[in-house]
Design a protein around this nucleic acid. Structure first.
Length: 477
RNA sequence: CGGGGCGUAGCGCAGUCCGGUUAGCGCACCAGACUGGGGGUCUGGUGGUCCCCGGUUCGAAUCCGGGCGCCCCGACCA
């Protein structure tokens, strides 16, 4: 197996190699599509389990709507059609015949869902509707990257309906909070929760909330979004309910989603020159046991002992025994490091004799000798520590690459050249034209206006016009 | 859609400029032996529509014409 390109010399080559060599995914026969391999899919399944549990804890139920949407549905919400029509794939033929009405392959499901909600909602007693679906969607992107932006991707999309604006807004924030917790507590990634500007918000939303993370090349990645849709879709699809007083009201809506892009965030948020570093809670294998032996007698003894150890550890961690006889230990070390397994146990004749094992940490690269007794406890504690360490490292990196920028000169300097610029906290006059101008001149965009943003008087970094707060600029994926 | 790169064994590539034995190398794979605490060594072996179509030629991976596809960089976006 060839070595990895160093991330500091060519970040995107490094990223692709981690995905391909680590066997997370492969290219598909069709441009921009990918095959998710077992190891990559296992990470996605762990993400799904954790998120699904959090959705259910917050009162949501899963549903499934169809892949195909009548083309006319997309056209009912003006902003929505403008945003999505250019990237829709359209089915025009079926069964060898031209269809009466073309069918769009869903780029997102608001339209088909709200078309259905019209029938499901009559009274305030029917509300709220708190539904989520796990699905694939298709967007005909021009430029694709494994996991970060593929034509087809897997995601979850929550679609809720509420009687009042207050309730819907509260739901939007609640789900952003869920995403933030997931990012921090499962992915070990610090994120900035915030509000998108008008030009960056979801097509059809009144307000888009997001969490923004910093990748290893100092670029920003939007890791999740939660939209307050107002009554836009209710009006487009004529969804109303009768309130307690007998009056007819339009329903208030939210939608929110995260996708397989999060796997890309994991890679770029924690990876190093050896490959992936998985946070333990999302690692398909949390511990890999590598037996070491020369002779047949040693092999028998070591494997027997290794099996006992694995059975023992199984109750407290996801353990993989790598008993392949076709590759040597050094190869296994490198391979599992590339694939980001948080902990490795090495066990050989010398260890057997001493009743110990070698425990190696992926995050710090340190090795320690430990008695087999009490190992499960130690593994559990170490995994918690790895999670903390990954989070702290990512946060330290982000903080070291976050700058308060007050002059246009400095802004230009920090965004010059290829690669990321870090997060630039700068004043902005609030005008879409200024935002567009800055984007054109520097490639940096406003990632978000942080929630609970401190207010301070200042001058727009580009125009010098008065401003009341700093916003987060960055070059983004 | 613009710019760049590439298409030859499962993967990575050489050969193409300047046409000519049986298309080659590394890795992987198969068999065996020795090995085994950080990406093993040796011996033998399997595996090819040279992206596709057409043309030139006694002869094309190589020259000419046309087409297709993928990757990377930008514009669009989770």
């Amino acid at each position: 197996m060839p070595g990895l390109t160093n991330p500091s010399s060519d970040y995107s080559a490094w990223y692709n190699e981690v995905v391909l060599q680590g066997e997370l995914a492969d290219y598909a026969p069709v441009r921009g599509c990918m095959i998710i391999r077992p190891y990559g899919y296992a990470i996605w399944e762990l993400m799904q389990q954790a998120l699904d549990g959090m959705f259910k804890e917050t009162g949501h139920q899963n549903v499934y709507f169809p892949l195909l949407i009548p083309e006319s549905f997309l056209q009912k919400e003006a902003e929505h059609v403008e945003g999505f029509a250019p990237e829709c794939a359209v089915v025009t033929h079926g069964g060898g015949k031209k269809l009466e009405e073309p069918l769009v392959i869903r780029p997102t499901s608001e339209t088909i869902i709200w078309n259905t909600y019209r029938d499901w909602i009559q009274s305030y007693r029917d509300l709220p509707l708190l539904y989520n679906q796990w699905a694939n969607v298709l967007r005909w992107e021009l430029r694709t990257r494994l996991f970060l932006r593929t034509l087809e991707f897997l995601w979850q999309e929550g679609h809720t309906a509420h009687a009042t604006q207050e309730e819907a807004v509260e739901e939007t924030h609640r789900m952003l909070g869920v995403y933030r917790r997931f990012a921090e507590e499962w992915m070990a990634l610090p994120v900035i929760p915030g509000i998108k500007t008008e030009s960056e918000k979801f097509a059809g939303a009144v307000q888009t909330l997001c969490i923004e993370a910093m990748m290893g090349d100092r670029r920003a990645l939007q890791a999740g979004t939660s939209h307050f849709l107002g009554q836009n879709f209710a009006k487009a699809f004529d969804v109303t309910y009768q309130d307690e007083t007998g009056g007819r009201q339009h329903v208030w809506a939210t939608s929110w989603g995260v996708s397989t892009r999060l796997i890309g965030a994991l890679i770029m948020g924690h990876g190093d020159e050896k490959g992936l570093r998985l946070p333990p809670r999302l690692a398909p294998y949390q511990v890999v046991v590598v037996p070491i032996y020369k002779t047949d007698e040693e092999k028998t003894a070591v494997l027997e002992s290794a099996h006992r150890l694995v059975d023992f550890l199984k109750t407290s961690a996801r353990v993989k025994l790598d008993d392949r006889d076709t590759v040597r230990p050094g190869f296994k070390f490198n391979e599992w490091e590339l694939r980001g397994v948080p902990l490795r146990v090495e066990m050989g004749p010398k260890d057997l004799a001493k009743g110990q094992v070698v425990l190696a940490r992926r995050d710090t690269g340190t090795k320690e000798f430990l008695p087999q007794e009490g190992l499960a406890e130690h593994v559990r504690a170490t995994m918690d520590d790895i999670h903390r360490t990954l989070f702290e490292q990512a946060k330290a990196f982000r903080d070291a690459n976050t700058f308060r920028v007050d002059t246009w000169e400095e802004f230009r300097e920090r965004t010059a050249g290829e690669g990321g610029s870090g997060f630039l906290l700068a004043h902005w006059d609030g005008a879409a034209e200024t935002e567009a101008l800055i984007k054109e001149e520097t490639k940096a965009t406003i990632r978000c206006i942080p929630l609970d943003n401190p207010q301070e008087a200042g001058k727009c970094v580009r125009t010098g016009k008065p401003s009341t707060q700093r916003v987060v600029f960055a070059k983004a994926y």
